[in-house]
Amino acid sequence: MDLTAVHLRYLLAIYELGRAAPDVGAAEVAKVLHVSRPSVTRMLALLMDRGLLVRERYGKIYLTDSGFLLAKEFQRKTQALCARIPAMGLSLTEEELLDTACLLAGSLPRHVFEKPEK
Rank of each mutant, 00 (worst) to 15 (best):
P116A: 05
G51P: 04
L44A: 02
L108V: 00
E28I: 03
Q79M: 12
E56F: 13
P116V: 13
Q79P: 08
Q75V: 02
R110A: 08
G59K: 04
L108W: 03
I85D: 04
L103F: 12
Y58T: 13
L70G: 00
A26K: 03
L69W: 15
H7S: 08
R55Y: 11
V24M: 04
V35I: 12
V6I: 01
P109T: 10
I85E: 09
G18P: 07
S36G: 09
H7K: 10
S91G: 12
S36D: 15
V6F: 05
G25Y: 15
Q75A: 03
C102N: 00
Q75M: 07
L44R: 02
P86H: 01
P38E: 14
S39D: 04
V32A: 10
E96Q: 05
Q75H: 07
E96R: 08
F113H: 09
V54A: 15
R76C: 07
A45M: 12
R50D: 10
C82I: 00
K31M: 09
L53F: 06
A30L: 06
K115I: 11
A87K: 14
T4G: 03
M88K: 14
K118G: 04
G51C: 03
L69E: 15
S39W: 07
H34P: 03
S107R: 15
L92T: 12
R19F: 11
R42E: 13
S66M: 14
E56P: 02
A101W: 07
D2H: 15
E114K: 00
M43N: 15
M43D: 10
D49L: 03
E95G: 13
A13E: 00
L90N: 03
A27Y: 02
L17N: 12
A80Y: 06
L47C: 04
M43Y: 08
L108Q: 14
F68P: 02
L90W: 06
L33V: 11
S66H: 04
A105W: 05
A80K: 07
R110H: 09
L90E: 06
G59M: 00
P38S: 07
R9M: 00
V32E: 02
L98R: 04
C82E: 01
M1W: 13
Q79K: 13
R42L: 00
E96A: 03
L33S: 09
D2T: 13
A71T: 10
L69P: 08
K60G: 04
E73P: 06
A101H: 02
C82L: 07
A83C: 03
D49Y: 01
A13L: 00
M88F: 11
R37P: 06
L33A: 12
T100W: 01
L53N: 06
L46P: 02
M1G: 11
A80F: 00
L11I: 07
L69M: 13
C82W: 04
G89E: 10
G25L: 14
A83L: 06
A27F: 03
K31W: 12
L90G: 05
H111N: 14
M43A: 14
L103S: 09
M48K: 11
L63I: 03
L69A: 07
D65G: 06
S91I: 12
E96T: 01
A21T: 11
